[in-house]
Nucleic acid binder design. Structure first.
Lengths: 206, 206
DNA sequence: TAAAAAAGCGCAATGACTAAACTTTTGCAG
DNA sequence: CTGCAAAAGTTTAGTCATTGCGCTTTTTTA
């Protein structure tokens, strides 16, 4: 997220203070993205961004934890939705299937804006910049432990069961595999077919 | 690998010049490891290491690409051995099986020195330091593309086949999953069982 | 309306890393 | 052996992200 198009409407800030704060934050994110797209991530200094947003560098770091974070709106309930996808999956749907659906859904949410020409540029920026690619990847894999627990709970396995951990890890890794492919849906089907069959062998009925 | 104990004997340098160069490199690596183990990675600056090895900071960076690299001897033929594990697997052994063996072998090579008390410290240092953990992880996953090609070639699939890419990615990711487990062999069996069955479903006989 | 709380600011510092220009070693051709 | 070029090392000065500190300005709230 962070290419300008909103997917989820946040609750509007209440006071003037919070409004201004959000505005400053937005100015920074906007300035950053514009500069990154025009000159490339590495050619733009944090000073340039602060100047463009007309704030000090110190202020920039009060709003964002680092240079890479300027590009991504933080998705706080990503973990919750991931866990929910497993826990509240419809009866008869396997866990890998549920995870595949969830990934594609997130993917589709983004693809809504596929028409927006800036979306392609944004994606390319992230995928072509190691620092940003790694950061995005970490945002996902950060939730591996939570997903592992959710899966283990769902099948009644011990919390540290290796096959549950493996499924969680692999499913999360599948994201970037899918992302770089021209036909995401087909890529997701193939990657998750592997997990689907492997999982079914040891956990029939889940 | 960098904790002092040698696993593979490199070809000895020929001239005095190369010997001295290698010596400087070794002094740096030794100093770094010792300081890191004693004070922690983040509490030690590159300046401290350079001083301890009695060279300048610039020299340090002529020998190592970055602070993290000081801890790892570069394993250049890691990629070749990975590809070979797939290509030259004994008949009747599936690709996931071959990869599991190869991972365990590498693991075992290291565990030879399990008696060395410094080995445990070394491992803990790497696993407890985000920068080092990520670096080690990247050293593995760097070879994903090569492994994908090797697998695709082995089964006669197109070079960019998604299921081959998925197997490659997952197998490489399995390493860190296994590494953090108390019983590596069992963890490897469980993680690769998933891949084994999933792979067999779409590529019978490989 | 008087603080308390929060947003910003400038400045100085740290720590990893690089570029440039210079000195010392080392290897080797004559 | 001599002398010269390449390689290793040094110093110095710089960039860039990121943090801490102390100060000013706003906004909130008691």
């Amino acid at each position: 997220m962070g290419y300008g198009g909103r997917v989820t409407e946040p609750t509007e800030p209440t006071g003037r203070r919070e409004r201004k704060k959000a505005q400053t934050r937005q100015s920074l994110a906007d300035a950053a993205l514009e500069l990154f797209l025009e000159h490339g991530y590495d050619q733009v200094g944090v000073k340039d961004i602060a100047d463009a947003a007309d704030v000090s560098v110190t202020t920039l770091f009060k709003h964002f934890s680092g240079k890479e974070a300027l590009v991504f709106d933080q998705d706080d309930d990503l973990e919750a939705s991931l866990v929910a996808a497993v826990r509240e999956r419809p009866p008869g749907r396997s866990i890998p299937q549920a995870l595949r659906e969830h990934l594609l859904l997130k993917q589709t949410q983004l693809s809504i804006h596929a028409a927006d020409p800036r979306f392609a540029d944004f994606t390319r920026l992230v995928e072509d910049t190691p620092a940003l690619r790694d950061y995005a990847h970490r945002m996902w894999t950060r939730h591996e432990a939570a997903l592992t627990r959710a899966i283990a709970e769902a099948v009644g396995a011990p919390e540290d069961d290796v096959s549950c951990a493996a499924l969680a890890r692999f499913a999360l890794e599948a994201r970037s595999l899918i992302l770089r492919h021209a036909e995401p849906r087909r890529a997701a089907d193939e990657a998750f077919a592997l997990l689907e069959h492997g999982w079914a062998a040891s956990h029939p009925g889940n």
